[in-house]
Design a protein around this nucleic acid. Structure first.
Lengths: 229, 229
DNA sequence: CGACTTATTGTTATTTCGACACAATGTAAT
DNA sequence: ATTACATTGTGTCGAAATAACAATAAGTCG
């Protein structure tokens, strides 16, 4: 049995759906595979898990190698383990998704030879392996989670306007929201800190800037408050 | 490298949290381990995944070998992959939970030497491996899911009373519900079929029996209805 | 200064939610 | 037959959340 055959007899990997938001579209970061199988195809960034590495650690490593970012929001979704999902052998993969600020992402990661590119969700074609299925599952999970926990802020810069926040939610949920009702609801949660600053360089009335108050959120949760949009 | 060492170099398993309901308590089916490691300790039923076996299939197999049941509700929760979670080597496990009717469960499964026993959730002590953590995660997922989808019926016999249904929800959610409000809400969904039968053999006014109408539920979902308690 | 663009704000009708108590229907015992 | 007992089954009302809806304010640009 060759080295490769032996390794692939039973292996596990992590795959990471990295979401970003460019102000109007929800995007996902994909890499173009440089080697077989599926050479040339777009795929989710992922890697085999090292023998002495926790699953979560492996997911963080993949993310950091590709984006240079550490400490960002990252969550496991589920495992995919169909027998024939990997053409070279039995590999189950654990899917994660993470939320990053596109502005923090450096375009030229040194450690990956593959080209990486942001794709709008509508423009994602056929991916390698079962990655379309993984992406669908992660997106579904994101849609759900973003309504139950204040994770949307992970996709925005530290200072943002209410309109930007609303556009983010509209992109993720793929629905239109009423402006007045949205603002009422968000502001009534008392999770946003009014920075007494306004946008600059816009050709119209500048909007006020807010910041998500994480400390206050933690305190509210301890008191029984639950986020719900 | 011995056979065992080689196998455990990298393996994956499934573990199954099997929930049941005895009319007043939510229970979980545990086995007592007959071999090292953790010999004698209570544990979740689980097994290594065969090389040519899908994850879901493996979970179904574990469930059937222990209970004799097929085609019951079963759902993956997540993977657990801490490096040292298994003392003999690197084994990640995929956790599932399933819902069965205790009355369908045959007490003496042939294929498992270990003794299996229903445990009330309050009486679960320290389990083998990281199984307490897995159980906690599955229970949390069940609590969440049972409010979003009509899966509670999987734990009840085909014919049940509204009081039984309410007690089930109270057990799972660990909270008391108002009788009138609960009945109003459940009945307004039009998912229960009034069987025009009543309980027999009870020493008081017998309650009407209902059945969950799965076909109607599927139809309603197609029309945009969403279950919510 | 006028045209333009986006930000900001409040009211009302409708629906949902939560609290709450008593009469009806059966069995069991005398 | 009557009574005690246990559990089922039902309606209202106030509070709170939700959804629909449009006009004015604050900037920039030419």
């Amino acid at each position: 049995m060759s080295e490769v055959e032996s390794f692939f007899k039973s292996a596990f990997s992590v795959d990471n759906v990295i979401f970003g938001f460019d102000g109007s579209d929800l995007k996902v970061l994909l890499i173009q595979r440089g080697a077989a199988p599926f050479k040339g195809k777009w795929a989710l960034p992922g890697d085999l898990v090292y023998p002495n590495e926790d699953l979560d650690t492996a997911a963080e490593r993949v993310l950091e190698q590709l984006t240079g970012l550490r400490g960002v929001y990252l969550e496991q979704v589920k495992a995919f383990g169909a027998v024939n999902r990997h053409p070279l052998g039995r590999v189950i993969t654990i899917a994660y998704y993470s939320l990053i600020k596109i502005s923090d992402y450096s375009v030229t990661p040194a450690s990956f030879a593959q080209s990486a590119k942001w794709h709008s969700l509508g423009e994602v074609g056929e991916l390698a392996f079962d990655h379309n299925e993984i992406l669908d599952n992660c997106l579904k999970e994101l849609k759900h989670k973003v309504r139950m926990a204040p994770i949307g802020f992970e996709l925005l810069p530290p200072k943002f306007t209410l309109t930007e926040l609303q556009q983010l939610y509209e992109s993720i949920l793929e629905t239109e929201l009423d402006k007045r009702n949205f603002r009422k609801k968000i502001l009534s949660m008392n999770l946003l800190q009014d920075l007494d600053e306004v946008q600059e360089g816009v050709a119209h009335r500048p909007a006020k800037l807010y910041r998500f108050d994480r400390k206050r959120y933690v305190k509210f949760v301890a008191e029984g408050f639950s986020f719900d949009i």
